[in-house]
Write a protein that binds this DNA or RNA. Structure first.
Lengths: 119, 119
DNA sequence: CTGCATCCTCAGGGATACTG
DNA sequence: CAGTATCCCTGAGGATGCAG
């Protein structure tokens, strides 16, 4: 992707499909990997790869804390850092707004499509 | 892209690379097409195609109002609807947060990369 | 000036299989 | 359980050209 301001990258991680869902779930409480996956699956199918990638981005950005307990079988807890909590709250606000206004948006789309699309 | 809840699409439009920049600029005042393009260009290269696509998405979602004056050469003003203003404010809040915390994020990345990447 | 239509590329991300 | 590695394919999105 073209060169943009560096904060774009952070926004990208945080507002990405799975980023949003991860942050909102972690805002409630820490989750394990598979737990997170199951929870998100109810909304859309996450591949392990993408969930892992998302979590690593967020961890790298200092938003998520990864606590891998040295036991077997592995047990890894993901939780928000203070910084991550701030981010998650911003994102949740946006998500809530989207939910609230979804009706109006859907309506607007109908109007637009009627006027233009298949007039 | 896989099937997700419909509000994901709205978030996608609103938090897209150019969506964010468009909304923030329109929050200040209405803009013409080329004006918007020039303004955004200083941050990253927008193709006409993408700017047009972004504006159409936002218009379709009822967030942006398109006022095409029937003159020649064409003169088109884009501005926010009330709904769009709400969205833009959410997005701006997120963008401002990202700016404020960018230092911490950058720092976290360094730490992460030192510990992992090229240890 | 404001935009559609077309072509083409390249990387995001899904599926699958394997490891500690 | 919690990932990493690989393959592969779709579609986002840049460049260009044309039209009203």
């Amino acid at each position: 992707m073209a060169v943009l301001c560096p904060q774009r990258l952070t926004m990208e991680h945080v507002t990405s499909r799975w980023g949003v869902l991860v942050l909102i779930r972690l805002l409630e409480r820490p989750h394990r990997f598979a737990e997170l996956r199951r929870s998100i699956r109810s909304v859309g199918p996450v591949s392990e790869k993408m969930l892992g990638q998302t979590l690593r981005s967020l961890e790298r950005d200092g938003l998520v804390d990864r606590d891998a307990k040295p036991v077997v079988p592995p047990h890894v807890d993901y939780s928000l850092t203070d910084l991550g909590r701030e981010a998650a709250e911003q994102v949740r606000a946006l998500a809530l707004w989207t939910n609230e206004r979804m009706g109006q948006v859907a309506k607007a789309r109908e109007v637009y499509d009627t006027a233009n699309g298949r007039a």
